[in-house]
Amino acid sequence: MTQVQRVRVEGAGGWVRESLRRVYFKRTGSNETRLLVVLDEPRQEAGLKVLVIKQDGARPEVWVYSPDMRRARRMVGAGASSSALGSDFTAADAEHLAAFLAGDAVRVLGDTTHAGRAALLLEAPVAATDAGYERIRVTLDRAWCVPLRAVFLDAAGAAVKSLEAPAAQVSAVAGRHVPMQVVVVDAQSGNRTTVTLEAVAIDEPLPDALFAPQSLEQGR
């Protein structure tokens, strides 16, 4: 899968930060996925590449390439695996959400409607103790099987973060429904991150070499 994402972060204080990034995703093995993010804008940040190799049940392996150091480097810890690349929706959040959708601890809370659409209300605990939230509650569109809303709840039931995919922005791409816009609001900072897909391609063949650490040093 390939996406071109425009990310706009609006701070509670009125500041705005925008970036454009290419995201490549591929399942490279039975229990391995690879994610490559290439930053194109703003100009001062362009050229940063982050490759995340994730094997089920293991810590993600993160490779980072910066044009100034001219070689890819494996990074362990220091936030590299949970880095948000400037937004409030971290890789760890995405991972917890993905684990939610794939996990078997999901509890169906009932039927609901969201933005006039029939949906299921689901909830599951988060396994990680350092996530900053204990549960995720998802409103899943029945027909599209797309999460229209996800709320990350703490022990007291208060929303720590929320993710909203406007139904009007859900498009069919290669026979699948894809939210073309996602809005994440961080309750603590008050920041609002809007991720808009400017282009998306599904099932497009991506060479394995694209996801090799050595290839980070080549091309743009």
Binding site: W15, Q44, D68, G79, A80, S83, G132, S189
Partner: peptide, 23 residues
């Protein structure tokens, strides 16, 4: 300038939040 921005982009938001505001 650029390595500085890259270092900040790779920062753990929680840890960075102990030293600087998000903006």
């Amino acid at each position: 300038a650029r390595p500085l921005r890259h270092a900040l982009l790779l920062a753990d938001p929680t840890l960075l939040g102990r030293f600087a505001t998000p903006d």
